[in-house]
């Protein structure tokens, strides 16, 4: 449905997005994952026609839309990372304004506004000004404003940043409903791994402006199929022990946790015995071993050497 080909954006001398190829099939829910500054928002701005790419192409159903984005805009709803609403207007007035400029037919606008308000759970607050809303409520109206024209594709740029867990769950559930019940194609960007894991069929992982991995969750997790992830609980933390463990040849990553360490290592039969030996040498007791299934976070750590929130 939507496809980007070697999408690139340079700002002055700096390349912010480099040769990004991605695609969204009809009805899919796709995650775009990456830390802050990875180039996710710039990629989205180019896909949504807000920003002209330096090079590359964006295609809708096989037709380039970079030069003539009007067809794309008809089918696209964009939820920006920022609360792009008029704070002095009420929720209803904001929706009415955006509905009109999205050219929702006059006879359908009122129904659309009420349905959308119901969907985001704010029908009873429609006459209140946005500036009086909580962060979560503002986020929900921010999403509602992108839904009035019934977009076939919805792009959400970190729509849950800075809100309480309850509102976050509400928003995630709402997006899932849109995808599953209305068949809306979703492109969801976040640096919250668990959201992407919960919502998306496929994932693109971006770092430093490039897509460094892509595929279904199981495909991405298989990157770590030759590796074990384990949590080791210790009676005390020791930096010298961490340093010693890092020198074991099968070790890929060692990360300190609150009560011990998390290790990613190549599958090896004598890893545990080596760990016990090193701990004994430093008079540190291992209280517990726990083998973990790898997560997308581990995949990211494996690919980039840092966590998503670094």
């Amino acid at each position: 449905m939507i496809e980007t080909i070697k999408l690139r954006k340079d700002f002055k001398e700096k390349t912010v997005v480099e040769d990004v190829d991605l695609y969204l099939d009809k009805g899919e829910s796709v995650g775009l994952l990456g830390p802050n500054g990875a180039g996710k928002s710039t990629t989205i701005s180019m896909i949504s026609s807000l920003l002209k790419p330096t090079s590359g192409d964006v295609k809708l159903n096989g037709e380039s839309v970079v030069k003539h984005p009007s067809e794309l805009r008809k089918v696209l709803g964009v939820v920006p990372q920022e609360i792009a609403l008029y704070q002095e207007l009420t929720a209803y007035e904001n929706l009415k304004f955006f509905g009109r400029i999205y050219r929702v037919p006059k006879d359908k606008l009122e129904t659309r506004i009420q349905t959308t308000l119901k969907l985001v759970g704010l029908k009873d607050r429609q006459k209140d000004r946005i500036k009086t809303f909580s962060g979560g409520m503002k986020r929900r109206i921010n999403i509602a404003s992108a839904l009035l024209h019934h977009p076939k594709v919805l792009i959400l740029d970190e729509p849950t940043v800075g809100i309480d867990p309850q509102s976050r769950n509400y928003i995630l559930e709402m997006i899932r409903q849109l995808n599953e019940q209305s068949g809306t194609t979703i492109l969801y960007t976040s640096h919250y791994m668990e959201e992407v894991e919960q919502l998306c069929d496929r994932v693109y992982i971006m770092d430093h402006g490039k897509v460094i991995a892509s595929g279904s969750q199981s495909e991405l997790l298989s990157i770590l199929s030759n590796e074990d992830t384990m949590r080791v609980q210790l009676n005390q933390m020791s930096h010298s022990l961490v340093k010693a463990i890092q020198e074991i040849d099968v070790i890929r990553q060692v990360e300190e946790t609150g009560d011990g360490i998390k290790i990613i290592a190549k599958k090896s039969t004598n890893l545990i015995s080596n760990l016990v030996k090193l701990a004994d040498q430093q008079n540190i007791k291992i209280l517990n071993f726990q083998m973990e299934n790898p997560s997308l976070e581990d995949v990211f750590l494996h690919l980039t050497g840092r966590t998503l929130r670094d």
Binding site: L50, S70, R73, P80, I83, A84, Y86, I101
Partner: peptide, 13 residues
């Protein structure tokens, strides 16, 4: 600053 202009720019108006 409040990005409402960007939102307007994304419509076909």
């Amino acid at each position: 600053r409040e990005h409402t202009f960007n939102r307007i720019a994304l419509t076909n108006t």
